[in-house]
Design a protein around this nucleic acid. Structure first.
Ligand SMILES: [Mn+2]
Ligand SMILES: [Mn+2]
Ligand SMILES: [Zn+2]
Ligand SMILES: [Zn+2]
Lengths: 151, 151
DNA sequence: AATTGATTGTGTATCATTCTCATTAGAGAG
DNA sequence: CTCTCTAATGAGAATGATACACAATCAATT
């Protein structure tokens, strides 16, 4: 839940006996430059990088996304499309949550400061080290309500 | 987010032109009789039913779980094991959330009334019809913190 | 009881993610 | 700067969860 630079990423990796690689640095940069409310799947990130001439293998993409999520650098989102999405795990002023239509998958971000407080307090009370805290609301959007039935 | 009986399930299905089948009724019952804090994956439900002599195909299990989640009868949980888990979607006094250790997957349930209020209000403000609202906290449990490194 | 189309079961297909392993290359030591 | 150690990468194969196709069945409505 902190802001990362290549340098701070490197020291955090090295502290654990791991290494900063060009691939990891590049992937972090992509997420840092991502427009607001944009989420990337592994496949999407892979193609985005291909488009920029960066040839990072899909295996490495998957490994890096998982690693960074477990370090608390990225958050892993289950946005109802059958595969995970990732975004930067940002602290307080930018921390937000997701409202998802289960029919059309339209997703809205919203903020609520008390939720992060609840998450922090709960983790602390149980002695857990907090990585991420996300409220996910599953619902049916207005358009899909009007479109009747289809599940 | 309501309490279901075979009868109310039937009428809600029929209202949409769908049918109450023995399989659907059985699956609902399983969830209604599940011990507190117990979550089931499709595969687990399948084997549980097999053990009770109920032969419901895995396809039907998957279809029914998805259907009931989209009806708001069950909630679909992403508990970090690589596959979905389901539990009854219960209203206020029993509504709860999950604190998950990303390393050992240990999961703790906790309650917090204000979260459901936030979810309800947010959905309402956007004109969404609320199905489920869950706070998921990803963290590292005390035991895994002591066990150093391993991601 | 007859009709209709939703639902089921079986087998197969798909797709996201992980694994294997030979090769490459960070990081720290000297 | 060079050497050593071992973490990380890339390519492809393997895995596993879930969806799909379709013929047979059966729940609801008349
Ligand atoms: Mn977001
Ligand atoms: Mn639960
Ligand atoms: Zn929608
Ligand atoms: Zn743990």
């Amino acid at each position: 839940m902190a802001l990362y630079t290549a340098t701070s990423l490197k020291s955090e990796l090295n502290d654990r006996g791991w290494r900063l690689t060009p691939q990891r640095e590049t992937i972090l940069q992509v997420f840092q430059n991502l427009p607001k409310a944009k989420h990337l799947s592994a496949e999407e990130l892979y193609h985005l990088l291909q488009g920029e001439g960066e040839n990072i293998s899909l295996s490495t993409i998957y490994r890096t996304l998982k690693l960074m999520a477990r370090m608390g650098i990225l958050r892993e989102l289950e946005l109802a499309e059958g595969h995970k999405h990732y975004e930067l795990n940002q602290p307080y002023p930018h921390h937000h949550h997701h409202l998802i239509c289960v029919r059309c998958n339209k997703t809205i971000e919203f903020k609520n400061d008390s939720i992060l407080k609840t998450g922090t307090k709960t983790a602390q009370k149980e002695g857990y080290h907090l990585l991420d805290c996300q409220l996910t609301i599953h619902a049916v959007c207005p358009a899909c309500q009007r479109a009747l039935l289809p599940i």
